[in-house]
Design a protein around this nucleic acid. Structure first.
Length: 254
DNA sequence: ATGTCACCTGGTAGGTGA
């Protein structure tokens, strides 16, 4: 089984790339972030024609998530139950017995802002819900754009980024607490090239200079950990003519 | 390097978010 996550930064712009990518990488399921489409504009017909069932949850202009799967996802959940949130950031479904939770975590802007406080509240609500989801679904994958660089080795310049958004102690503590529920960072189960990033700023020639962050993450439950056989970042997608600023992350299970 | 991209409103640019 292969799963993936990709922040497309506008599905309206990136749909052709998504369809090409799926043809070349026929994963069993993929979660998307930043679709930036209201539900009535979601291109479900094109995705279904490519052989995928799809569930989506969007809004105008910002955010928006989707779950694509070869087989029909069951028990779809949109956003975090009990957490009243006008922003469309979560979609979950069960595919071939595996609970898949796709998330577009809040950016948070900067410590001390309202957006950072929202990020903290959102992360807390996610964790409380995940505790229940893990109890109900031992085989669980939480993946998406976490907007957190878990450790300094996930940052191209950890000194410059110290205390900045994605790298604050508070965000990293939330990440550790999520992992503490019984999850494992699939990418770190394997030896990886140094300076492995999943996001590069559009500005500052960041991709050319390989100045990025690893903020797109796959967490797998204890029951799945031993079955993970690979986890890779498809950084070639960032070389496209009109790329997303994020590269897809793929996880493979034996 | 101030270096971009995508979206919106309301325009043949400016603001917001990332």
């Amino acid at each position: 089984m292969k799963l993936a996550t990709w922040n497309v930064n506008s599905l309206a712009v990136r749909l052709p790339q998504l369809l090409d990518w799926l043809a070349a990488n026929p994963v069993d399921a993929v979660v998307l972030q930043e679709t930036k489409l209201t539900d009535d504009k979601f291109p479900h017909a094109e995705i279904e024609a490519a052989g995928y069932r799809v569930a989506w949850h969007g809004q105008k202009t910002y955010n928006g998530v989707a779950l694509l799967a070869r087989s029909e996802p069951a028990d779809i959940v949109r956003n975090i139950p009990g957490f009243d949130d006008p922003q469309a950031r979560v979609i979950a479904g069960t595919v071939d017995g595996v609970r898949i939770i796709g998330g577009y975590f809040p950016n948070g802007q900067a410590p001390g802002t309202d957006k950072f406080e929202y990020k903290m509240q959102w992360l807390h609500a996610l964790r409380e819900w995940l505790r229940e989801e893990l109890a109900a679904h031992p085989e669980l994958v939480l993946l998406g754009d976490f907007n957190i660089a878990p450790e300094d080795r996930d940052v191209f310049d950890p000194v410059a980024w110290a205390g900045q958004i994605h790298c604050t102690d508070e965000e990293r503590e939330h990440f550790r607490r999520l992992v503490g529920l019984g999850l494992h960072d699939a990418f770190r189960l394997f030896e990886q090239p140094p300076k492995s990033w999943s996001w590069w700023d559009y500005r500052n020639l960041a991709f050319r200079k390989n100045q990025g962050l690893r903020i797109d993450i796959v967490l797998v439950s204890e029951a799945l950990k031993s079955r993970v056989s690979a986890c890779t970042i498809d950084r070639a997608m960032r070389k496209n003519e009109r790329p997303s600023d994020h590269a897809p992350v793929i996880v493979e299970f034996a």
